[in-house]
């Protein structure tokens, strides 16, 4: 696993935010919610989760919409949407630097921002990317150059309750054995991500304990 760093509470206007760096890849996420939601998007018995992805340059196209959809579905499974019916939870993801393992970084930063905002969650998620290169070797957290040369790119998202798979996103061709190997490897390193969450939040809340 490459090194992870995060900053929480840097933005002032939103309800929660996180700037996450995984290796060279960096993403900032802001969370607003629970807020009011447009009438046509209102759901009677649960909150509407919306994800907006902003790339560094250019207008959003199909790829970005797909990206938004993956993150939205992942976030919706982790948020306790029934706790805030007829309201909206908006997640805005801003690309800062894309140097590989990008989807994983986006999902992890969204998770941290939701934690910072104090939105009710069923569980946490941790995303890990791995790459199968042309020799069949598995590389964890590939950079963008490795991604270009690799055979298949797999991103797994696990929850912190029983470490089951929440989301899988793959590109390229691989055998079922390779898929199994990648799953178990990523599952192992997802635990490091959860430890990182815990450490970051303990640091953030430590000043609280000091006073009381």
């Amino acid at each position: 696993m490459c090194e992870m760093m995060c900053e929480l509470g840097q933005l002032t206007r939103c309800d929660g935010d996180a700037c996450l760096m995984q290796g060279e890849t960096c993403v900032t996420t802001a969370v607003y919610g629970p807020t009011e939601v447009r009438i046509n998007k209102e759901i009677l018995d649960k909150a509407t989760v919306e994800v907006v992805y902003k790339s560094k340059v250019g207008l959003p196209g199909c790829a970005e919409k797909m990206f938004e959809r993956i993150i939205r579905n992942t976030c919706e499974t982790m948020i306790l949407t029934t706790a805030h019916p007829r309201s909206g939870i908006n997640i805005i993801i801003q690309e800062m630097q894309n140097s590989g393992s990008y989807l994983a970084c986006c999902i992890n930063s969204a998770c941290l921002a939701l934690l910072d905002a104090g939105v009710s969650l069923k569980f946490l998620v941790a995303a890990v990317t791995c790459l199968i290169d042309n020799e069949g070797e598995i590389i964890l957290d590939p950079n963008s150059k490795q991604e270009k040369d690799g055979k298949a790119l797999l991103t797994f998202v696990f929850d912190n309750k029983d470490f089951s798979i929440v989301t899988v996103n793959t590109k390229g061709s691989y055998s079922s054995q390779q898929f199994k190997d990648c799953t178990s490897l990523c599952k192992k390193s997802s635990k490091q991500v959860f430890e990182f969450y815990k450490k970051s939040m303990e640091k953030l809340l430590s000043k609280d304990n000091f006073v009381k």
Partner: peptide, 24 residues
């Protein structure tokens, strides 16, 4: 369900003290 410090009050009350910005 929320991130924060666990608080306890005698005899059997438990809750999570979290940092929210949005009021519910």
């Amino acid at each position: 369900t929320k991130c924060g410090l666990l608080r306890f009050k005698e005899p059997n009350f438990y809750w999570i003290d979290s940092h929210l910005k949005r009021y519910v």
